[in-house]
Amino acid sequence: MSHTPIDRLAHATPPAMARRVRGLSDRAIAWLFVAPTIFLLLAINIFPLIWTVRLSFTNYAANRPGREVEWVGLRNYTRILTDDGIWANMQTTAHFLIWTIALQVVIGFSLAWLINRKFKGNDLLTTLIVLPMMLSPAVVGNFWTFLYQPQIGLINYVVELFTGIPASSFSMLGPGGLAKWSIIIVDTWMWTPFVMLICLAGLRSIPDYIYEAAEIDRASKWRQFWTITLPMVLPFLMLAVLFRGIENFKMFDMVVLLTGGGPGNETLLASIDLKREAFEKWRTGYSSAYAIILFVTVFGLASIYVKALNKVKER
């Protein structure tokens, strides 16, 4: 007599049901378990994606239920790809993405390198450093708005203290070209600890005996860094870059609270622009095309990046 889980299940169920279960193959039962998840995935992710693709070829407006929906072909895509304003927003997004990632990687790795050494108060310092990433982006956006305020803000006061430039003579979030750097500073302040933690995990995964062997071979600290530390931490670092890249490509809340995309369009990231098109102007068809273009961009870049990451891991 067999005592497989399927048999036990069959014995515990009414005879009619048991007959049905006994007749199922392992593969069928596996599908039975996976089916709800697949159904949910199709309903929540895949169907909306397909529906968005369909809408992107129409003039549909969600706030105009009575209006006839027209098939407009590639018009939405053509308009987006030939719109100078949208290209400017993409450049703003790229500027934000590249600088935040670069700064977070450099500072995060440096902090991890320092924290990885054993010293008194190490744990307390680590906890303090990771505090910013525990805060809500809404809170961060609001209190940095006050820090940047020209009349009462701490930042302008500190600048005046060290440079003599009057605090009220410039605005970190206003015109003058500083706003795009101000949002980078805030994001770097908030998310560098995240990169640091990932790098720290990487540093702590390197076995001590490798460094001991290098010491015996009289390798300098510099050489050890380039030939042991960096190559072994690289997969972790690349993972952090992937996470931060995806997150910052869709950055919305913090920047909206800090600048609202302004002054003018200086900090208008693609995600903020897309939200305005979709849910303020209600150009649903147009914004669907916009979303598809952004999706293809992120998906394409992420796929290339993941392939590179896998190659690094295989080395």
Binding site: G174, P175, G262, G264, R276, E280
Partner: peptide
């Protein structure tokens, strides 16, 4: 929103 963008770009952002 079009007017918001045009006016803010000119008046505040000096464009």
């Amino acid at each position: 929103l079009a007017m918001q963008e045009r006016l803010h770009n000119y008046i505040v952002a000096d464009q």
